[in-house]
Design a protein around this nucleic acid. Sequence first.
DNA 1: GCGACAG
DNA 2: ATCTTGTCGC
Length: 272
Amino acid sequence: MEEPPEEPSQSQESWRDHHTWITTQDILREKLITEDSFSWKLSSKGASQGETGYKKGEELRYVGGVDISFSKDDPSKACGTLVVLDFHTLQLLYQDFSFFTLQVPYVPGFLAFREAPVLQQLLEKMKRSDNPFYPQLLMVDGNGILHPRGFGLACHIGVEANLPTIGIGKNLHHVDGLTHSTVRKLLGAEENSSKDFINLVGCSGRIWGVAMRSTQGSIKPIFISIGHMISLQTAITIVQKTCKFRVPEPIRQADIRSRDYIRKLGMNGKVT
DNA sequence: GCGACAG
DNA sequence: ATCTTGTCGC
């Protein structure tokens, strides 16, 4: 018998790890809830600002956003960030950071095993301390069910934290025949020219999410998919209401502040 | 077989 | 993800 040639640089990530990861995703996916499942509600148009008799906590108010940014010097150094914004005013209510060293490589389809642990820790820390701003909904920088096995980062965090989540992708993850050109064709189609979002229908007929022109006149869409305990329709509504720019504010703020945190640590190479 | 592939 | 300043335009 021949010895399988060793790949020194690959010794950390064998196909075995992927198999374990797939099993984990398959198991967690059984707990996924793909419809609205929360106690709050979206305030009805016009009655949102004033106190109209709703009990506190019944309306959506605390929207979280998570992101991770990396040091350009040392790609294994990163900063996980959690922010919470007021759904109506989009003002920052809470922010927390966690600087850490990455142990797991990025492998397409397995982003959660690299990024979910830190983000979950940030959520857990907030919950343990009974912070009144603990998010009622979390927006995640990465996909939900728009994923090879229908279980992206947003689903992963949602299930493990038992929290409603929405996945926001800035690039399309090719799944079920969906490609860059597919989307371009759909967005450019005559009958869709006036719509601000289109369903991402794969070859199988399944709807994986939507591509949305979040800002008027923006060419490059964002990709919205459900994470956990929320319907696509509700997810779309919430994203639209939180978009001042292309990327919804909770994600955008987490991104900006995360970068800023790393920069202020002097991890950007500039020593001037 | 080759290429594609969230962050 | 990260590499990158100014610049053209609403």
